[in-house]
Deep mutational scan, measured.
Amino acid sequence: LQAFIKTLTGKTFTVEMEPSDTIENLKAKIQDKEGIPPDQQRLIFAGKQLEDGRTLSDYNIQKESTLHLVL
């Protein structure tokens, strides 16, 4: 599935991932794409901060969901 990552500066980019991917995997993909170390990334979806060990499906993240990236 493709999801949108929106930063506080208003920049939006897309990442490809599977519902079974962990938040940790997602942070690694963001690092590959944007060069931001995972330990500096905080991802917010539906008002909740996402925990590394959980999966996208745990948070009911669907295709074309928008996640907010806070540094």
Rank of each mutant, 00 (worst) to 15 (best):
S65P: 08
D58S: 14
E16L: 12
S20N: 13
T9I: 06
L71A: 08
T22I: 04
T55Q: 08
G47D: 06
L71C: 08
D21Y: 04
Q2E: 09
K33C: 06
I44Y: 15
D32A: 15
Y59C: 03
T22K: 07
D21R: 02
T9M: 10
I5P: 01
K33I: 15
H68I: 15
L69P: 00
L1T: 06
D21G: 07
I5C: 05
I36G: 02
G47H: 05
S57K: 12
R42C: 11
Q2F: 14
F45H: 08
I36P: 04
Q2W: 13
I23P: 01
T12C: 10
Q49C: 10
I30V: 04
V15I: 14
P38R: 13
I36T: 08
S65L: 09
E24C: 06
I5M: 02
Q41E: 00
F4E: 07
P19Q: 10
L26K: 00
Q40Y: 10
Q31F: 15
Q41S: 03
G10L: 03
K11F: 10
F45V: 04
Q31M: 13
G53Q: 10
K27D: 00
Q62I: 12
K11L: 10
V70K: 04
F4Q: 10
T55D: 03
Y59A: 03
I5N: 02
K48E: 12
I5K: 02
R54G: 06
S65D: 14
P38W: 11
K6T: 14
T12Y: 09
Q31T: 08
Q49Y: 13
L43E: 00
Q2D: 05
I61A: 04
G53A: 10
D52E: 07
R42L: 13
D58T: 04
R54D: 06
D39P: 05
L8H: 14
Q41N: 01
E64Y: 15
T9N: 13
E16V: 11
E24S: 13
A46W: 08
T66Y: 08
E51Y: 05
K48P: 02
H68F: 14
E16A: 09
L43Y: 03
M17Y: 14
E16W: 14
T7R: 07
L69N: 00
S65C: 08
G53S: 11
T7M: 15
D32I: 13
E16G: 07
P37D: 07
Y59G: 01
S65M: 12
Q62D: 13
E18I: 11
L67V: 12
Q62E: 12
G35C: 04
M17S: 04
R42S: 11
P19T: 11
D32L: 14
L50G: 01
I30N: 00
R54E: 06
Y59N: 02
L8F: 14
G35W: 02
K6V: 15
R54C: 09
Q62G: 14
D58G: 04
P38D: 04
M17T: 07
S57D: 09
G47L: 03
D39A: 13
K6G: 03
E16D: 10
K63Q: 13
